[in-house]
Design a protein around this nucleic acid. Structure first.
Lengths: 299, 299
DNA sequence: TTGAATATACTCAAAATGAGTATAACGGAG
DNA sequence: CTCCGTTATACTCATTTTGAGTATATTCAA
């Protein structure tokens, strides 16, 4: 019984947006996220993961950021001697034709979390979910009020309305309420399940990405080199699971000077041709962080 | 040579603000952050760390959030068989009198990163730093422009001015430029060094906290149960290393309904007595995330 | 009684946001 | 060719949110 020894595993939520649909890279026919052991040969966690994904899927990863590290005991019932530590990452790529064997399978992420897509209005599945959550809340007289409040908040039933950033909180609530298959022996469940806690990690990645697009120009990692403003908007909408106000969206993008015209024009828009834009690389460094929300005093 | 086996280590940046000075909990007379192995007996990473800190310092930790996981090979020149994975956390506490042995030593965090405190205006040490950075930038003719631009940006010499959130980027730049003792054999160095990469982790924690206070009500974890608005402001200022506009600060706090009056009054203010406030616990759940920055469309 | 020091209330212009209206430019149906 | 559906793009306008002050109120202590 060695103290402090553990198995280290790397795992990735690799996202792309193709035809306005957000997708995640999976293995085992959509049942698991790509993962693999952290090996001695790896220089860093990041480079280890890069190699791994590259080898497993043939896809080069552009953007890669650490998500979270898990090691709950009840999570991994480890048959081997030590514990397993899972270090998860969020990667952003342009989905391409898989070279060679074409191993990576891309699945729309709303297949796993169907209640998260509000682009066509409130999804119908929410009615059933709310229904079950009510039953669950009422089942414990002691915690009834608290449970109702939590359900109302995370699923946007109170004043605040739907908050797209609460993806993880929603999944965790469903898990606790026994409404997802991963929670064990449940009769009712929503969305396609995944292996172990992979769906939870997917939810973590989505939540992180939804929050991040608001203050960092990461969407561009998912865009081709030239794009129209509507394409950009559709991509953001796909990620956020919401519809945006077109005129205000372009105002926002333009005033922040995130893009510049390429000079080209896209004519296959179905209407008036649109100007093509490219991301202004310079802002990555300069606008690294959004403006402060603190009431500063100038000296 | 077992594949995927590693030593797991837990490490914490535990912060408190006492007499308007942000402090960090240290061991080894201020040279290291508290840390310890992740043991088989621990249920989760968090609970493992909680036990560990509690035992090592006698301090109970309220708020604890994961920071980052490191495992660079060149970072830990590991003498033992495997690699070491360091999982770091950020903790927030009210500094109290240490019970018993009083092991924890608190050190002001600007002792380690003196260029980060702009509350008394621009710190003088910055002049010397900029000077050395210029020399470093010029030393490589090929990367000169890029280095200058990076230095100007992270240290606020260009249009954008000082950005308090770039704490980690600044430390990393100084490290690369060989201006901190941890970078090896350097002649010039700034701030008090720490063991291994602990100062880098401290910078990571500060950066995270500075960013977080802007969109999540975490400051209250550092406040006593009742406080005046100025005390709250001074705490935020201590963390951000900046001075804030008093009237606008209270407007911000009040309009967000983060606090409510206790009814009490603090008379030892040195001037007109101030009303005491308490944090409104309800907002933790309800205002879990800030308002969206996306131009939504209502359906 | 007068300051020094802080608390708290208000003002006011500038900027950012939410929600539209108006007009332009394409392709295809008739 | 003309009208229509569809998308692009330019502007408008009221409301909110900021940034930066001014004005007043209370306290203690010299």
């Amino acid at each position: 019984m060695t103290i402090g020894l553990a198995h280290a595993e790397l795992m990735a939520v690799v996202a792309a947006v193709t035809s306005n649909e957000p997708r995640v890279m999976t293995v085992r026919s959509g049942e698991a996220l790509p993962s693999g052991p952290f090996e001695l040969g790896h220089r860093t966690l990041q480079s280890g993961l890069r190699e791994w994904i590259q080898e497993q899927t043939g896809h080069p990863i552009g953007y890669l950021e650490q998500l979270y590290t898990f090691a709950d005991r009840d999570r991994n019932n480890d048959i081997r001697g030590g514990r397993t530590i899972s270090i998860s990452y969020l990667g952003l790529v342009l989905e391409q034709d898989a070279p060679g064997a074409g191993r990576p399978a891309w699945h729309g992420w709303y297949e796993y979390l169907p209640w998260e897509d509000h682009r066509q209005g409130r999804p119908k599945v929410l009615d059933a979910i709310i229904e079950k959550l009510r039953v669950w809340a009422d089942a414990d007289p002691r915690r009834r009020a608290e449970r109702h409040q939590r359900a109302d908040f995370t699923f946007g039933l109170d004043h605040g309305g739907w908050n797209e950033d609460l993806t993880l909180q929603r999944y965790e609530l469903l898990y606790e309420a026994g409404l997802v298959a991963e929670a064990g022996d449940v009769s009712d469940n929503f969305g396609r399940p995944m292996f172990a806690d992979h769906r939870r990690i997917l939810a973590t990645g989505i939540a992180r990405l939804r929050a991040k697009i608001k203050y960092r120009p990461v969407v561009f990692e998912l865009m081709p080199s030239a794009f129209t403003l509507l394409q950009l908007q559709r991509t953001v909408e796909a990620l956020a699971g919401l519809c945006l106000h077109k005129q205000n969206f372009r105002r926002l993008i333009e005033q922040q000077e995130l893009v510049e015209e390429t000079g080209g024009i896209a004519s296959e828009t179905g209407g008036r041709p649109a100007k093509l834009f490219r991301f202004r690389q310079t802002v990555v460094e300069e606008r690294a962080l959004s403006g402060t929300k603190l009431p500063l005093v100038r000296n």
